[in-house]
Computed example of a mutant assay.
Amino acid sequence: MLVALDHIVVAVRDLESAARHTEALLGRPLSWRGEHPGAGTANVLFRLENTALELLTPAGDGPVGAGVAARLESTGEGMVALAFATPDAAACAGAWRAVGLGPRGPEDGLGRDTESGAIRRWSNVYADPAATRGVLLFGIERRSPPDVLPLCEPRVAAGAAVGALDHAVVLSGNVDASRKLYAEQLGLRLALDRSFEARGVRILFFRVGGVTVEVAGPLEVKVDAPDHYGGLAWRVPDTEAARARLVEAGFDVSEVRAGAKPGTRVCTVHSRTCGVPTLLIGPEGRVPEAESSP
């Protein structure tokens, strides 16, 4: 029923500033600059190889904008939702109803690109946050051709640009409950369930459409607190080149270090990430010069 991670939604206060910072972070221009008539929001979208990133801000009157404004007031900028692609929103709603996710919808949506005038249409199904441990999850059926949202091509050397999403992180207060949600109710494939006794942490990896949803939480549940989003890890061909590019652009970035996954090198981006904890992850070794040119 869920075939991919369609996009990640990030709430921001200043859309223009957030868009500039994200273009610099990814090394790619935005794919879409739009508005949602009647919803009270404006957005920009970056379409990457395996998902898209949406920056969303209140704009005018509307129920969605009011909700985003309330979120910004209470907790600030950051990740607010994961949207999973489904080929059939009505069937998704029925399946979610059957497993106790209390869905709302399908609800048809429309977005207009404010520069080109292009229109995108979709149908969303929202799981009840009370049934998803407090995080917003929804299914989306796209009803417009994929090329209406073009892939954003690199503006920098390909080796130094973000290419795709590696994983999105959910921090769980009760990993057993979260495993039931993502594996049994949402139907995502569980690829890893591993406990780290020394750290007191248990980690689950769920795969969908070439992306991993990582769920991490304590081995011992003392308080069954709600889940919340914990950040994004972006794939780069050359971690050292990506770090050097960001440092030159004025970002605060950690030194490159060995990743938790063998054969990887990572660095953490500490600034200009719209409140999203951000990791860059790439393979060991540098990309040959011929492969890193635009």
Score class of each variant (00 low, 15 high):
residue 41 T to C: 03
residue 248 E to T: 11
residue 107 E to Y: 03
residue 122 W to E: 00
residue 269 V to I: 14
residue 123 S to F: 02
residue 285 G to Q: 05
residue 272 R to P: 00
residue 201 V to E: 14
residue 82 L to F: 15
residue 256 V to M: 07
residue 234 W to P: 06
residue 103 P to M: 13
residue 118 A to N: 05
residue 179 R to C: 10
residue 147 D to T: 09
residue 260 A to E: 11
residue 75 T to C: 10
residue 84 F to M: 09
residue 127 A to M: 10
residue 23 E to Q: 15
residue 144 S to D: 15
residue 53 L to N: 00
residue 128 D to H: 10
residue 89 A to M: 12
residue 284 E to I: 05
residue 95 A to G: 14
residue 248 E to R: 14
residue 139 G to L: 07
residue 30 L to Y: 12
residue 125 V to R: 03
residue 207 R to C: 06
residue 59 A to P: 00
residue 242 A to L: 07
residue 241 A to F: 11
residue 258 A to Y: 04
residue 81 A to L: 08
residue 20 R to G: 11
residue 20 R to V: 11
residue 141 E to P: 04
residue 184 E to T: 05
residue 83 A to Y: 03
residue 228 H to K: 12
residue 292 S to A: 15
residue 207 R to W: 11
residue 41 T to M: 03
residue 265 R to M: 08
residue 158 A to D: 10
residue 172 S to K: 02
residue 91 A to V: 08
residue 59 A to T: 00
residue 148 V to K: 07
residue 285 G to V: 12
residue 21 H to Q: 15
residue 141 E to A: 10
residue 192 L to T: 04
residue 257 R to E: 15
residue 14 D to E: 12
residue 197 E to L: 13
residue 138 F to D: 02
residue 220 E to H: 10
residue 121 R to Q: 13
residue 118 A to R: 14
residue 250 G to D: 06
residue 81 A to Q: 14
residue 276 V to G: 09
residue 57 T to G: 06
residue 282 G to T: 06
residue 235 R to H: 08
residue 21 H to C: 03
residue 25 L to Q: 06
residue 57 T to F: 06
residue 129 P to H: 12
residue 158 A to S: 12
residue 237 P to V: 01
residue 32 W to C: 04
residue 105 G to R: 00
residue 11 A to G: 06
residue 146 P to N: 06
residue 26 L to T: 07
residue 267 C to F: 07
residue 243 R to Y: 09
residue 208 V to Y: 01
residue 269 V to R: 01
residue 231 G to A: 08
residue 149 L to N: 04
residue 90 A to F: 05
residue 151 L to G: 02
residue 291 E to F: 13
residue 57 T to I: 02
residue 11 A to H: 09
residue 208 V to R: 00
residue 220 E to Q: 12
residue 121 R to Y: 02
residue 139 G to I: 06
residue 64 V to R: 09
residue 288 P to D: 12
residue 221 V to Y: 05
residue 264 T to N: 04
residue 92 C to G: 09
